[in-house]
């Protein structure tokens, strides 16, 4: 049986006088022990989805089950079995690290010592500061404490809503390493993120935008479905290059990626030779053109493009 089953979930919000669609008929399944990523920008509907699955919100339509329990009828059971880390830091800032953890352990009817094995790995990193008030911790440490608190009752499913937002690259990397280790303990993990590059760290991902799922699969499979040849282009004057490429009618899309532009041509017959000719004609120098494989961000943008049409 799957850890999470979502069937056709929809949710609308009333903002001022207009209804905003947060989720538009979403369906997916998360297998037991899977590290499942929900990747999308702010406003894609990630938080609404997490709140529905953690029984904090009621969906307008559709059904969802967590560990076999219905999110509406059996909400009490779900609240006993899941761990949840909301997007905003949600611990008591005026309590110390230890007091926070102790408090969450008690309200889940357990104690720190009972499940210490599970959090040991993470807790040891913040243990030197256990007498410090949570409000005085650094971003990375807060996040580790929040994860400990969400894990303290040994949940079978863990919901992490944008745990790495606003956290620097080093802490982000460490956090994902912790998730990989938790996965080994058999916990099913749903994690949302606006950072596309983190998708590759998940077993499977759902790419979300505007309340809809653009694609669900292993990141490598999503990328392999990128149908057209992709060219990485570089030259001396990058901003002028961007303008030229965007104005060239043969180009279908052109996006910057680090030091390169990723270019998709309208016709698959046109390749590096045509691009080079065009750039030479426009007086660009130090031209580099190579064919590359799409990454998840290329795929996301291509899917965004098709879904908007």
């Amino acid at each position: 049986m799957a850890a999470v089953i979502v069937e056709n979930i929809s949710k609308k919000y009333q903002v001022e006088k207009t209804k905003v669609t947060a989720l538009n008929g979403i369906s997916f399944e998360v297998a037991k022990g899977e590290l499942f990523g929900i990747v999308g920008p702010d406003g894609a509907g990630k938080t609404s989805l997490f709140r529905i699955l953690t029984t904090l919100l009621l969906a307008d339509a559709g059904a969802a089950r967590v560990e076999g329990y219905d999110v509406v009828k059996d909400y009490k059971e779900i609240r006993k079995t899941v761990g949840y880390m909301p997007g905003k830091f949600s611990l008591y800032q005026d309590l110390s690290v230890e007091e926070n953890l102790d408090f969450f352990a008690t309200i889940f009817n357990t104690s720190i010592s009972e499940n210490y094995d599970l959090i040991k790995d993470i807790y040891q990193q913040i243990e030197p500061f256990k007498k410090r008030r949570a409000g005085k911790l650094s971003g990375g440490m807060k996040q580790k404490l929040a994860l400990c608190c969400a894990l303290i009752h040994k949940p079978s499913v863990l919901f992490l809503d944008e745990p790495t937002t606003g956290v620097d690259a080093v802490s982000r990397k460490e956090f994902w390493e912790m998730l990989q280790r938790l996965k080994l303990q058999g916990i099913s993990i749903l994690v949302s993120t606006p950072y596309m590059d983190e998708a590759s760290l998940c077993d499977r991902v759902a790419l979300m935008e505007n309340g809809k799922i653009l694609a669900i699969d292993k990141p490598s499979i999503i990328n392999s479905k990128f149908s057209k040849p992709l060219w990485a282009v570089q030259s001396n004057n990058m901003f002028a290059l961007l303008k030229s490429l965007k104005n060239w009618e043969a180009v279908s899309s052109c996006y910057s990626f680090g030091e390169f532009y990723h270019v998709v041509m309208k016709s698959e017959e046109k390749g590096s030779r045509e691009i080079e000719e065009f750039l030479m004609k426009n007086q660009f120098q130090e031209i580099v053109i190579k064919q590359i494989d799409a990454n998840i961000e290329d795929s996301f943008m291509a899917l965004m493009h098709t879904s908007n049409e």
Binding site: P41, E209, Y255, M304
Partner: peptide, 17 residues
């Protein structure tokens, strides 16, 4: 650009340029 979708993120950088 925190949390902004990838396409808009690039459009933002075009404004910067």
């Amino acid at each position: 650009t925190g949390g902004v979708d990838p396409v808009t993120r690039r459009e933002f950088w075009e404004l910067i340029y």
